[in-house]
Protein backbone atom coordinates (compact mmCIF):
# COMPACT_ATOMS: atom_id res chain seq x y z
CA UNK A 1 0.00 0.00 0.00
CA UNK A 2 1.21 3.51 -0.82
CA UNK A 3 2.31 5.86 1.94
CA UNK A 4 -0.51 8.31 1.27
CA UNK A 5 -3.10 5.56 1.69
CA UNK A 6 -1.45 4.32 4.86
CA UNK A 7 -1.47 7.72 6.53
CA UNK A 8 -4.98 8.41 5.32
CA UNK A 9 -6.18 5.06 6.71
CA UNK A 10 -4.76 5.98 10.11
CA UNK A 11 -6.71 9.22 10.19
CA UNK A 12 -9.83 7.52 8.87
CA UNK A 13 -9.68 4.89 11.61
CA UNK A 14 -9.20 7.56 14.25
CA UNK A 15 -12.13 9.54 12.87
CA UNK A 16 -14.35 6.45 12.66
CA UNK A 17 -13.72 5.63 16.33
CA UNK A 18 -14.61 9.12 17.48
CA UNK A 19 -17.48 9.58 15.03
CA UNK A 20 -19.33 6.40 15.95
CA UNK A 21 -18.89 7.07 19.67
CA UNK A 22 -20.08 10.65 19.21
CA UNK A 23 -23.13 9.65 17.17
CA UNK A 24 -24.06 7.00 19.70
CA UNK A 25 -23.69 9.41 22.64
CA UNK A 26 -25.93 11.92 20.85
CA UNK A 27 -28.48 9.18 20.16
CA UNK A 28 -28.48 8.02 23.79
CA UNK A 29 -28.76 11.59 25.08
CA UNK A 30 -31.69 12.34 22.77
CA UNK A 31 -33.31 9.08 23.92
CA UNK A 32 -32.95 10.27 27.51
CA UNK A 33 -34.77 13.48 26.56
CA UNK A 34 -37.55 11.49 24.90
CA UNK A 35 -37.79 9.19 27.93
CA UNK A 36 -38.16 12.14 30.30
CA UNK A 37 -40.96 13.52 28.13
CA UNK A 38 -42.52 10.04 28.04
CA UNK A 39 -42.49 9.83 31.84
CA UNK A 40 -44.32 13.16 32.03
CA UNK A 41 -46.80 12.25 29.31
CA UNK A 42 -47.52 8.68 30.24
CA UNK A 43 -47.26 8.41 33.97
CA UNK A 44 -47.32 11.82 35.57
CA UNK A 45 -50.74 12.65 34.05
CA UNK A 46 -52.19 9.40 35.37
CA UNK A 47 -50.69 9.99 38.82
CA UNK A 48 -52.26 13.47 38.86
CA UNK A 49 -55.62 12.09 37.70
CA UNK A 50 -55.56 9.44 40.45
CA UNK A 51 -54.78 12.12 43.04
CA UNK A 52 -57.70 14.26 41.79
CA UNK A 53 -60.03 11.24 41.97
CA UNK A 54 -58.97 10.53 45.56
CA UNK A 55 -59.48 14.17 46.48
CA UNK A 56 -62.95 14.18 44.85
CA UNK A 57 -63.89 10.98 46.66
CA UNK A 58 -62.89 12.52 50.00
CA UNK A 59 -65.04 15.58 49.25
CA UNK A 60 -67.96 13.34 48.40
CA UNK A 61 -67.45 11.54 51.71
CA UNK A 62 -67.61 14.90 53.51
CA UNK A 63 -70.77 15.75 51.53
CA UNK A 64 -72.41 12.51 52.68
CA UNK A 65 -71.60 13.37 56.30
CA UNK A 66 -73.27 16.78 55.79
CA UNK A 67 -76.37 14.99 54.41
CA UNK A 68 -76.40 12.78 57.49
CA UNK A 69 -76.41 15.95 59.59
CA UNK A 70 -79.46 17.15 57.61
CA UNK A 71 -77.66 19.82 55.61
CA UNK A 72 -79.10 18.90 52.25
CA UNK A 73 -78.11 21.96 50.15
CA UNK A 74 -74.48 22.15 51.32
CA UNK A 75 -74.08 18.39 51.06
CA UNK A 76 -75.55 18.09 47.56
CA UNK A 77 -73.48 21.07 46.28
CA UNK A 78 -70.21 19.52 47.53
CA UNK A 79 -71.12 16.06 46.19
CA UNK A 80 -72.16 17.47 42.78
CA UNK A 81 -68.96 19.43 42.26
CA UNK A 82 -66.81 16.53 43.55
CA UNK A 83 -68.59 14.12 41.18
CA UNK A 84 -67.82 16.43 38.27
CA UNK A 85 -64.14 16.64 39.29
CA UNK A 86 -64.00 12.88 39.67
CA UNK A 87 -65.42 12.30 36.19
CA UNK A 88 -62.99 14.76 34.61
CA UNK A 89 -60.03 13.07 36.33
CA UNK A 90 -61.38 9.67 35.39
CA UNK A 91 -61.60 10.67 31.72
CA UNK A 92 -57.98 11.83 31.87
CA UNK A 93 -56.91 8.45 33.30
CA UNK A 94 -59.06 6.57 30.76
CA UNK A 95 -57.50 8.44 27.84
CA UNK A 96 -53.94 7.91 29.16
CA UNK A 97 -53.65 4.14 29.37
CA UNK A 98 -49.98 3.42 28.56
CA UNK A 99 -48.93 0.59 30.88
CA UNK A 100 -49.82 -3.08 30.33
CA UNK A 101 -52.67 -3.94 32.73
CA UNK A 102 -53.51 -0.30 33.43
CA UNK A 103 -56.93 -0.63 31.75
CA UNK A 104 -58.09 -3.16 34.37
CA UNK A 105 -57.09 -0.74 37.13
CA UNK A 106 -59.09 2.07 35.48
CA UNK A 107 -62.13 -0.21 34.99
CA UNK A 108 -61.96 -1.19 38.65
CA UNK A 109 -62.13 2.49 39.65
CA UNK A 110 -65.34 3.01 37.69
CA UNK A 111 -66.89 -0.23 39.01
CA UNK A 112 -66.25 0.69 42.64
CA UNK A 113 -67.25 4.32 42.04
CA UNK A 114 -70.58 3.28 40.49
CA UNK A 115 -71.44 1.28 43.63
CA UNK A 116 -70.47 4.22 45.84
CA UNK A 117 -72.36 6.69 43.65
CA UNK A 118 -75.56 4.62 43.74
CA UNK A 119 -75.45 4.88 47.53
CA UNK A 120 -75.17 8.66 47.80
CA UNK A 121 -77.65 9.27 44.98
CA UNK A 122 -80.40 7.97 47.30
CA UNK A 123 -82.29 10.56 49.38
CA UNK A 124 -80.85 11.03 52.85
CA UNK A 125 -82.24 14.23 54.34
CA UNK A 126 -85.76 13.76 55.67
CA UNK A 127 -85.57 9.97 55.40
CA UNK A 128 -84.70 7.24 57.89
CA UNK A 129 -81.05 7.52 56.79
CA UNK A 130 -80.69 11.06 58.22
CA UNK A 131 -78.50 10.77 61.32
CA UNK A 132 -78.13 7.01 60.79
CA UNK A 133 -74.43 6.47 61.40
CA UNK A 134 -74.86 2.73 61.05
CA UNK A 135 -75.91 3.20 57.39
CA UNK A 136 -72.82 5.33 56.83
CA UNK A 137 -70.42 2.90 58.51
CA UNK A 138 -72.03 -0.23 57.06
CA UNK A 139 -72.67 0.85 53.42
CA UNK A 140 -71.23 4.16 52.24
CA UNK A 141 -67.89 4.30 54.05
CA UNK A 142 -66.72 0.81 52.88
CA UNK A 143 -67.79 1.68 49.31
CA UNK A 144 -65.86 4.97 49.58
CA UNK A 145 -62.75 3.13 50.82
CA UNK A 146 -63.00 0.61 47.96
CA UNK A 147 -63.21 3.36 45.33
CA UNK A 148 -60.33 5.24 46.99
CA UNK A 149 -58.22 2.07 47.10
CA UNK A 150 -58.83 1.47 43.38
CA UNK A 151 -57.62 5.02 42.60
CA UNK A 152 -54.61 4.55 44.89
CA UNK A 153 -53.69 1.35 43.07
CA UNK A 154 -53.69 3.21 39.76
CA UNK A 155 -51.43 5.84 41.33
CA UNK A 156 -49.04 3.16 42.69
CA UNK A 157 -48.85 1.43 39.30
CA UNK A 158 -47.86 4.67 37.59
CA UNK A 159 -45.46 5.59 40.40
CA UNK A 160 -43.68 2.25 40.04
CA UNK A 161 -43.45 2.61 36.27
CA UNK A 162 -42.04 6.11 36.69
CA UNK A 163 -39.41 4.73 39.05
CA UNK A 164 -38.49 1.94 36.64
CA UNK A 165 -38.22 4.33 33.70
CA UNK A 166 -36.07 6.65 35.78
CA UNK A 167 -33.82 3.70 36.70
CA UNK A 168 -33.48 2.85 33.01
CA UNK A 169 -32.54 6.46 32.40
CA UNK A 170 -29.60 6.01 34.75
CA UNK A 171 -28.38 3.08 32.60
CA UNK A 172 -28.94 5.15 29.46
CA UNK A 173 -26.97 8.04 30.92
CA UNK A 174 -24.16 5.56 31.64
CA UNK A 175 -24.36 4.33 28.05
CA UNK A 176 -24.26 7.89 26.77
CA UNK A 177 -21.09 8.80 28.64
CA UNK A 178 -19.10 5.55 28.39
CA UNK A 179 -18.61 5.56 24.57
CA UNK A 180 -16.94 8.95 24.92
CA UNK A 181 -14.56 7.67 27.56
CA UNK A 182 -13.78 4.48 25.63
CA UNK A 183 -13.38 6.43 22.38
CA UNK A 184 -10.97 8.92 23.94
CA UNK A 185 -8.92 6.12 25.53
CA UNK A 186 -8.89 4.12 22.28
CA UNK A 187 -8.00 7.18 20.22
CA UNK A 188 -5.15 7.95 22.61
CA UNK A 189 -3.73 4.42 22.34
CA UNK A 190 -4.28 4.43 18.59
CA UNK A 191 -2.48 7.77 18.25
CA UNK A 192 0.54 6.31 20.08
CA UNK A 193 0.60 3.24 17.81
CA UNK A 194 0.08 5.44 14.75
CA UNK A 195 2.96 7.75 15.63
CA UNK A 196 5.16 4.74 16.46
CA UNK A 197 4.49 3.21 13.03
CA UNK A 198 4.91 6.55 11.25
CA UNK A 199 8.21 6.98 13.02
CA UNK A 200 9.29 3.44 12.13
CA UNK A 201 8.14 3.30 8.52
CA UNK A 202 8.30 6.95 7.43
CA UNK A 203 10.65 9.01 9.58
CA UNK A 204 13.33 6.34 10.11
CA UNK A 205 13.69 5.52 6.38
CA UNK A 206 14.01 9.25 5.60
CA UNK A 207 16.74 9.56 8.25
CA UNK A 208 18.40 6.41 6.86
CA UNK A 209 18.27 7.83 3.35
CA UNK A 210 19.63 11.20 4.45
CA UNK A 211 22.46 9.50 6.34
CA UNK A 212 23.13 7.24 3.32
CA UNK A 213 23.37 10.20 0.95
CA UNK A 214 25.60 12.06 3.39
CA UNK A 215 27.79 8.98 3.71
CA UNK A 216 28.00 8.75 -0.10
CA UNK A 217 28.93 12.42 -0.37
CA UNK A 218 31.56 12.09 2.36
CA UNK A 219 33.21 8.84 1.36
CA UNK A 220 31.95 8.11 -2.12
CA UNK A 221 30.95 4.61 -1.00
CA UNK A 222 27.80 3.16 -2.64
CA UNK A 223 24.38 4.08 -1.23
CA UNK A 224 23.14 1.21 0.93
CA UNK A 225 19.67 1.95 2.24
CA UNK A 226 17.18 -0.92 2.69
CA UNK A 227 13.50 -0.07 2.88
CA UNK A 228 11.19 -2.87 4.03
CA UNK A 229 8.00 -1.40 2.61
CA UNK A 230 6.97 -0.95 -1.00
CA UNK A 231 5.74 2.62 -1.12
CA UNK A 232 6.81 6.14 -2.09
CA UNK A 233 9.88 5.86 0.17
CA UNK A 234 11.22 2.79 -1.62
CA UNK A 235 10.55 4.64 -4.91
CA UNK A 236 12.54 7.58 -3.55
CA UNK A 237 15.48 5.36 -2.62
CA UNK A 238 15.58 3.76 -6.06
CA UNK A 239 15.32 7.21 -7.67
CA UNK A 240 18.27 8.42 -5.59
CA UNK A 241 20.20 5.28 -6.53
CA UNK A 242 19.43 5.92 -10.22
CA UNK A 243 20.51 9.55 -9.82
CA UNK A 244 23.80 8.51 -8.24
CA UNK A 245 24.38 5.90 -10.96
CA UNK A 246 23.71 8.47 -13.70
CA UNK A 247 25.89 11.11 -12.03
CA UNK A 248 28.75 8.58 -11.97
CA UNK A 249 28.39 8.03 -15.73
Amino acid sequence: MRLRAKILSGFLILSAMLLVAGVWSIYELSTIGISVQKILDDNYRSVNAAKSMIEALEREDSGILLLLLGKREEGRTIIGSADESFRKAYETARSNITIPGEEEYVDEIMNTYDIYRNLWRQSVVGTAREGDLNWYLRDTHPAFLKAKLAAQRLMTLNDQTMYLTASNLESRAHRATMPGIIAVASAFIFAIIFSFLINLFVVNPIIKLTDGIQHYLDSGSPLEVRIETEDELSDLVSSVETLIARSKQ
Binding site: S9, I13, A16, V20, I193, L197
Partner: peptide, 17 residues
Protein backbone atom coordinates in the same frame (compact mmCIF):
# COMPACT_ATOMS: atom_id res chain seq x y z
CA UNK B 1 -18.72 -0.49 18.89
CA UNK B 2 -16.25 -2.81 20.62
CA UNK B 3 -16.25 -5.00 17.50
CA UNK B 4 -15.46 -1.93 15.42
CA UNK B 5 -12.63 -0.77 17.70
CA UNK B 6 -11.21 -4.29 17.81
CA UNK B 7 -11.40 -4.64 14.02
CA UNK B 8 -9.79 -1.22 13.41
CA UNK B 9 -6.97 -1.90 15.87
CA UNK B 10 -6.54 -5.32 14.29
CA UNK B 11 -6.47 -4.15 10.67
CA UNK B 12 -4.20 -1.15 11.16
CA UNK B 13 -0.89 -2.97 11.79
CA UNK B 14 -1.55 -5.00 8.61
CA UNK B 15 -1.63 -1.79 6.60
CA UNK B 16 1.74 -0.61 7.88
CA UNK B 17 3.73 -3.67 8.90
Amino acid sequence: YTGLISALFGVFPFIFV
